[in-house]
Amino acid sequence: MHLGYSNKRLIKRHTMTTRLAHWGWAISLLFLLGSGLQIFNAHPVLYIGDQSGFGFDNAVLTLGTQGRAFPAWTTIPSGMDLATGRIVHFFFAWVLVSALFLWLVSALVSGHLWRNLRPTARDLQSLGTDIRTHARFHFPHRRTYGPLQKLSYGAVLFALFPLIVATGLAMSPGMNAAAPWLPELLGGRQTARTLHFCVAALLLGFFVLHIVMVVLAGPLNELRAMVTGWYRIDEGE
């Protein structure tokens, strides 16, 4: 870490909306994961198709054949409690969706989406360099997002988030009556449930990678940027 940076290299990196949305997502994902594993434990088998095979076999994953599938420290609450898990899950589902909606509207209106998140031709050209830089544990502090940042944030915001919401809604019998095309598009209600689990695993993977990147890139600077908005960039940027 370099000392003696002047305040000239402090830039306003994140808007208030981005920071609020970021922490809304972070908190709700933590609770959604814990309560989601709680809900999964109520029937720890995943299937492909419309229904669950009891008289035939369409299971793709079976956990917890001896006792509970996910241990107490991973679930919210810690004991087996489907009712409470559902209360927590649906509350934070609304938080996640609200934060996503507010951020999306703001990012569209302000041009943030187009200006800072859209991968440009130059980004794609320098993707290889960016990967090599990261592989060498060197994390540039740029004025704008780098190619890998744009691609990973874009994947979470525009692929994983919409998919986790769609696969979640495809499990709702009320939603399915009004929009039968939704579970059909996703391969049936039980396939949607399986996909919901897989997308949750991908989001957890992103979360772990994200934390590792923040820690490697300098956690104080990164955290300050996401709390106050102010971010210290490298010399020459």
Binding site: I39, Q51, M171
Partner: peptide, 11 residues
Amino acid sequence: RHDCVEGWSCI
């Protein structure tokens, strides 16, 4: 399709 709160379905 019968959807149980536990997560399974049966037609």
